[in-house]
Each structure stands twice: as structure tokens, then as C-alpha cells.
Nucleic acid binder design. Structure first.
Length: 425
RNA sequence: GCCCCGGUGGUGUAGCCAGGUAGCACGCGGGGCUGUCACCCCCGAGACCCGGGUUCAAAUCCCGGCCGGGGCGCCA
């Protein structure tokens, strides 16, 4: 039976095993050959071949070949890892052409665009694959935490007729004979769910934005981990966000060391998040030479400056009205400010709010923003028959990866990224 | 949407400013090698994005196109 390569070790000296994986490197001499095989367990093993028959076969092996090998594990002082495998049988399951670059050697000095053109090869590099594996694990543990808090999972539609929520542009699509749009976020549907009697739910799904960004932190298609909960405030949403992220980080830290070490040896779960208000953030920035007029949002330089100053994840609360969408609740005592917040963790990776659940105020807000009431008709109707107060947040999974593991390129956090000019692979 | 920068074998680059034989490393093909581990050694093939202009001569200077990279705005 096949065993993971990561399970091998000197302690298995003398045992017979079968491994399957991909040839990472072949080194042969006339009478001895070394074949390094790697599998999905984030480890490799050296097959040492002296048998004349296998030697003949080994000469035909090349990088990329998919093989299985059966043989004896042998503790060895000469082998770098302290053990190696002496195969008795090697089967070739699939051959490989010469790849355009070697994912084990060239990836570090091949520009990202070329790596993304051959993404499957690129992902053979353990570090690059580890990002995706960890992204899956982060998603799993975030869900796990939310489930433990009584959340269920729902799925909102990804095509709609609402051209904008304000903010980003959307992609038009042809829907039979009608014009429709890919949804930029589940926001409107999330709030409508709050009128159904479902009180706490999450959704993991794609968000599409038609913005021609050229930055290290923007995608035209990203995955959002959204939640919405009834009878809750912005404070509740922030606490849940912090608790779920820290839970996921701690689980990964404890249970998946082999994977995170491949990506970032210095990975540590974050300490407790800070909280500052928008106005406090402006004060900090002022001391660092950035004058931000009240009501204006922070730019990239300001965000970086705040991160460098605080140097751990922090919420910015009480965002000004002008920089928030219509569905965010204003403070009754000072309508210039809202119950909206952002989470900064190296980059801005989540934003949320207590929402406006009062029909009249919501209508007023939409008008204030200059948006067409008509295209929100279906949304607004949900607020006319009893809507509990509610709060929620959207979180960019790719950006969470950037924050947690110190990745500075968002495209590395997606299987097949969709950016301005990239529709393939 | 605005602003910068770039395009040399399969990959990464040198050469460009100051025009004159396109160099290097890895990879690839052939050969050698009993302990390698980005193995090593010998031999070989392989490239100036496209079009126009200037010039005795263009990878190099100029113009246009195409393609790519980066920063900002906005956001997650």
C-alpha cells in the first residue's frame, strides 16, 4: 500500500514501502543513480539505484515523470536526510515533456506573469502550493469556528440586475436576452437573508470587480468569506472576526507545522487586535506628516504608515459617512460618522458594520449617495416587513492569507488568478 | 481612469547611456563518471517583440504599433 513520503524516516530502516509521486531530479553516474521523488505530503525522498536493470530505467526517467516505487527504506549516513530508499521496482505512470521552467529551481527568478502562465508547473513548487493548502485550511477553520457559534452556510446568487452598490464597477454579462451583472459582493442578499428568520450565516463565494487595478493586492475575482448576524452590533461583528481569525491561525500553527514552515518559518498566530477610531488614526498620521481632511479615506501610503506604527492587526472604527456605502448605519448622535469598521492586517482585509435596518433611513441613504432607487427595489422590499437590527462583514480570503503569512502578492494566493488581462489558464 | 518603466535563446540576465564579432549561468542534445544531493567534467545546438526611419553600419539612436511590468485612485 502506498505511504506518504513525509511518513518515511530513519526509524523505518529495513521496512518495505511503496511510494508514488513526481520525479523532482535525477542524478546519474554510470553505475549509480539518484532519483529524488516528491509527493503531496510536502516531502521528498532519494531513491538510490545500483541494480543494473533499474539503472537502465533510471536513465530514461526525467523531471516531471509520475512514478511509483517499491523498496526498502534504509537509514544512511551518506544520504543528506539520514535515510534513503532502495527501490526494487519502479513503475512509470506518466512521462513528461521538458517543462519551460523547473519549478524547483527557476521559480525564484522567473517573473510572476510567466509563472502564472504555467501555473500548474508553478504550483509544483512546495512554497507556492503551500499557500493554496493553507488557504483551504484557513477557510476550514474559519468555518469551523463560525459553525461552533451557531452559524450556518448559505449561498447567494452570483448574477443580478443591480449595476452597482456604489464603489466598484461590475462586469456586465449577457443573460439570455437581458443585461445583467456579476455580483461584486453578496452584500445586498446577505441583508435580505436577515429578514427570513435565519439569524446567523456565512458564505464563502466569488466576488467580481471590474476595476483595472495594477497592484499587488487587487484581483478582479476574489473569494470572500462573508457573515451576517441578526440582533448584533458592529462590536459583535468585530469580536467574531477577531476570534475566528485567531482560532484559525492557532489551529494551523498547532496542527499543520509541516505546511506553514514550507511557506514562512516565522509564522505565528496574531496577538490581540488593536482598535482605533478613524479620528485617532488621523491623529497618528498627523504626527507622521500625513494631513488627512476629516471625512476622507486613507490611501495606500497612509495605510502602510498606520501598519508600521501599530505593527499588529487593528480595527479602524467609526469610519466617516462619506467613505462608507449606503447600507452602513450612521451614528444617531453624529451622522457624519458610521458604525462601519475596517480590519488592517498588513493590508485592508475586511470591512464590516452594523447595517441600517430601518427602511426610511435606508432609502434616505441611497438617495444621499445619488444611487437609483429603482434598481434596489427587490432589496428594499425586504426591509418593509420587519427587519431585525443586524451586523456583518466581508473578508477577502486572499488578503487574509497576505496578512497571516506575510505574502505580499495577492495573485500567489489564488489557484488561477483573474486580473485585468488574465483570463487563462 | 491617471502616471512611470521595460521587451535579448526554454528560464534568468550582460551588452544599450557612448552604434562596429551578441557574452554568462541554468536548462536542452551528445559523450565521460560508483555516493551524488541545484553533482561534476568535455563537446554541441539555440535569442536581439513587430514595422518604419537615421547611418557605411542598429540589440544599441528616432518614430509608430503590439505585448508586458510597476505605482496611484478605489476596494477585500
Amino acid at each position: 500500500m502506498r505511504v506518504p513520503i513525509a511518513s518515511l524516516g530513519p526509524h523505518m530502516d529495513g521496512q518495505r514501502v511503496r511510494i508514488c509521486g513526481r520525479v523532482q531530479r535525477v542524478r546519474h553516474k554510470r553505475k549509480i543513480a539518484f532519483v529524488v521523488v516528491r509527493d503531496g505530503s510536502f516531502d521528498d525522498v532519494q531513491l538510490t539505484i545500483k541494480d543494473p536493470e533499474l539503472l537502465k530505467l533510471a536513465e530514461k526517467l526525467d523531471r516531471g515523470y509520475v512514478i511509483c516505487a517499491e523498496g526498502i527504506v534504509k537509514a544512511s549516513k551518506i544520504a543528506k536526510k539520514g535515510y534513503e530508499m532502495i527501490p526494487e521496482k519502479i513503475e512509470v505512470l506518466s512521462k513528461s515533456e521538458v517543462p519551460p521552467f523547473d519549478p524547483f529551481v527557476d521559480v525564484d527568478h522567473t517573473i510572476l506573469a510567466k509563472r502564472l502562465d504555467r501555473r500548474v508547473l508553478d504550483l509544483r513548487n512546495p512554497r507556492n502550493r503551500a499557500i493554496l493548502v493553507l488557504k483551504g485550511l484557513v477557510t476550514r477553520y474559519m468555518r469551523e469556528y463560525l459553525y461552533s457559534q451557531g452559524f450556518i452556510e448559505v449561498h447567494t446568487p452570483k448574477v443580478t440586475i443591480t449595476a452597482t452598490e456604489g464603489g466598484a464597477e461590475v462586469f456586465p454579462v449577457k443573460r439570455f436576452d437581458r443585461e445583467a451583472y456579476l455580483v461584486m459582493s453578496p452584500q445586498l442578499y446577505k441583508q435580505m437573508v436577515m429578514a427570513t428568520g435565519i439569524e446567523r450565516f456565512l458564505e464563502v463565494g466569488p466576488c467580481r470587480r471590474a476595476e483595472k487595478h495594477h497592484t499587488k493586492k487587487h484581483l478582479n475575482e476574489y473569494f470572500g468569506l462573508d457573515i451576517e448576524m441578526a440582533f448584533a452590533t458592529d462590536e459583535d461583528a468585530m469580536k467574531l472576526l477577531e476570534d475566528s481569525i485567531r482560532y484559525a491561525a492557532e489551529k494551523i500553527f498547532e496542527d499543520h507545522e509541516r505546511v506553514w514552515r514550507v511557506l514562512n518559518e516565522k509564522f505565528e498566530p496574531p496577538e490581540k487586535f488593536d482598535r482605533i477610531t478613524y479620528d485617532e488614526a488621523r491623529e497618528i498620521l498627523k504626527k507622521k506628516g500625513f494631513e488627512i481632511p476629516r471625512g476622507e479615506d486613507f490611501g495606500a501610503d497612509e495605510e502602510r504608515a498606520l501598519w508600521n506604527e501599530i505593527n499588529k492587526p487593528f480595527f479602524i472604527t467609526k469610519r466617516p459617512r462619506s467613505a462608507r456605502p449606503f447600507y452602513v448605519m450612521r451614528l444617531d448622535e453624529d451622522p457624519k460618522y458610521t458604525k462601519g469598521f475596517d480590519l488592517i492586517y498588513r493590508v485592508e482585509l475586511a470591512s464590516g458594520a452594523q447595517r441600517e435596518h430601518r427602511y426610511e433611513k435606508l432609502v434616505e441613504n441611497i438617495k444621499d449617495k445619488g444611487l437609483p432607487l429603482e434598481s434596489f427595489r427587490y432589496y428594499l422590499e425586504a426591509f418593509r416587513y420587519g427587519m431585525p437590527p443586524h451586523a456583518g462583514r466581508g473578508l477577502g480570503l486572499e488578503r487574509l492569507m497576505m496578512g497571516l503569512f506575510g505574502i505580499d502578492e495577492v495573485r500567489e494566493c489564488v489557484l488561477f488568478p483573474r486580473t485585468v488581462d488574465r483570463l487563462t489558464p
